[in-house]
Design a protein around this nucleic acid. Structure first.
Lengths: 143, 143
DNA sequence: ATAATAATGATTTTCATTTTCAATTGCAAG
DNA sequence: CTTGCAATTGAAAATGAAAATCATTATTAT
């Protein structure tokens, strides 16, 4: 899903919820949709302010909350005490590996792992609807 | 490893680090070692204060930091905005599966998953030192 | 016993959110 | 096009968990 389509999904979410559309929110959302990093609120605010200095922190905060609710963004905690937001991935779910030295984040996906997870859950009588897998270690640059 | 042995590990950790042993820290540690829930600082403080009202938040905080450093406790974030501490498991590392309806937490371990994680990381040039795997779903009681 | 240093506990500070509030804006009905 | 109501905004204040400060107390090696 590209930025344009995400914008449409957002519009219809706003409509269903009886909310109103505003230039600020549209711009923040659009800016976020065009990022592909795991961006923090501060980083996004800085990015947004470059073109629209008037926008405040609270509006960015509220917009990201809205995007998270609507499923267009994923909020993640990688242990550095900051929430980071990730765009809804093109090609389905993926997991993360985080460098504990430089904080670089890489992504990976392994179908076999997912399958083993399901099996492990089943053994305990659980049904999995979601999961979070994060590996922490050193990236190639940090040995 | 039982509470007594953990206490000994703590003692030697303290010794190696050139720290001093105190009644407060021993009591906090002992109290923690005897819990088997994922306890928060506030909960632990409350528990400790029942027998030793004089102990302050900061001491509990610092003791849990020490236990985490020494590997005797594991700090976890389950997304409720509070750090929770878990005792070093008897039988090595395990992962968690959390019921999204009743919040029940079950534990499991799968060596094959760990191995696949290592491989996935290696493919990206990373070295894994730690990981976090959480499955979210429904427990047997919640369908 | 003494000196050096770590620990304690109350308090303050930090920092990332989260909320408040007055002013503004969007939108639907008339 | 106006009007009124409800949502939105941005600045500022509040919140809350974690971390730091600091004067006092306690521990340990000598």
């Amino acid at each position: 899903m590209d930025a344009v389509n995400k914008m449409e999904v957002l519009k219809s979410y706003i409509e269903t919820k009886g909310l109103k559309s505003t230039a600020q929110r549209d711009f923040i959302a659009d800016t976020f949709f065009k990022t592909n990093t795991h961006i923090s609120l501060d980083e996004l605010l800085k990015k947004v302010k470059r073109k629209t200095p008037g926008i405040g922190y609270a509006t960015v905060y509220r917009t990201m909350k809205l995007l998270t609710e609507s499923g267009l963004a994923i909020a993640r905690q990688f242990g550095d005490g900051q929430t980071r937001y990730e765009n809804l991935p093109e090609d389905g779910h993926h997991d993360h590996i985080i460098c504990i030295k430089c904080s670089k984040i890489a992504e990976f996906h392994n179908q076999k792992i997912e399958q083993l997870q399901m099996e492990a859950a089943k053994k305990l009588g659980f049904t999995v609807v979601n999961h979070k897998l994060e590996l922490y270690g050193y990236c190639p640059d940090c040995v």
